[in-house]
Design a binder for these strands. Structure first.
Lengths: 138, 138
DNA sequence: CTAAGCCTTACAGTTAACTCTAAGTCAAGC
DNA sequence: GCTTGACTTAGAGTTAACTGTAAGGCTTAG
């Protein structure tokens, strides 16, 4: 089975070797094998685990909490309930982020229209008296 | 018209006075008025501007870039084109974030199902031989 | 056989965005 | 009149997540 050096793994995951060593130091790669010379050897399963780690990071989960999850994984079936609950919680977090992002998008789109109109008119003054709410200086 | 102390403004915006002073120091509140005693006095329009600032922050825009935008606002109609383009770019950024978040959600939901099944079976081993891809140790 | 370009370790430095401290001012309540 | 508490300033400290440096060891192309 193909294995990867830290540089190759970094390339595949779009990270740097620095970052992967940092993750290792923080305990996010507990089962990573080494060659006789002590060089890290990444298996496909390690890359899959790292993809999950990146996914959790995307949700805003801090490294320390991700480590807790990794420790649970090493702990086997004892921790199934915790791991299930963690993913349920992540799901709620991501759903909330989605809501927030939709609101943000709505504001941004209004601003796009606002500036489109102002550009057409050649001046922001077009908004000054028609719509009190749109007359903010920003 | 009602004005707000820094503490009141902080409460309304769900920020801290520290943060608002920091924004001021970084030039994000260029037109903020002061009382005769030198105390900041926030108007409704300042709060509106801060809501836009929070919105831009949500999109991952760094403080320095937000300051550039605030400077453009002070510069009047000269900068309408730049401001329009900035919001168009933000729109694209948010759209990309939304895509990424949807992908993340999909992975998380798969993991929820994975752990639901494992919990029902009482063991993660249920996934071990049926689906090679689901057999990752994480 | 040796130099290039990986890799290793331990540890220091960087960055953004706060967050707080110290020293001092000011307005309001008792 | 004096204490309380919110405000001011300049500037130092914190935090997370990297990011880089220094000193040195393997591996392979020429």
């Amino acid at each position: 089975m193909k294995t990867y050096s830290i540089g190759e793994a970094a390339k595949v995951l779009n990270l740097t070797p620095y970052t992967l060593r940092y993750y290792d130091k923080e305990g996010l790669l507990p089962h990573i094998e080494r060659t006789s010379g002590g060089i890290r050897s990444f298996k496909e399963s390690d890359l899959e685990a790292l993809k999950i780690i990146e996914c959790l990071k995307m949700t805003g989960m801090p490294i320390k909490e991700i480590k807790t999850f990794i420790d649970w994984c090493s702990d086997g079936d004892n921790s199934l309930q915790q791991r299930y609950e963690m993913f349920q919680e992540r799901k709620a977090v991501v759903a909330a982020q989605m809501q927030e992002l939709l609101q943000t998008m709505s504001v941004i789109e209004h601003k796009c229209e606002y500036y489109q109109t102002a550009l057409d008119a050649g001046t922001e003054a077009i908004h000054k008296h028609n719509h009190a709410k749109a007359a903010s200086p920003v």
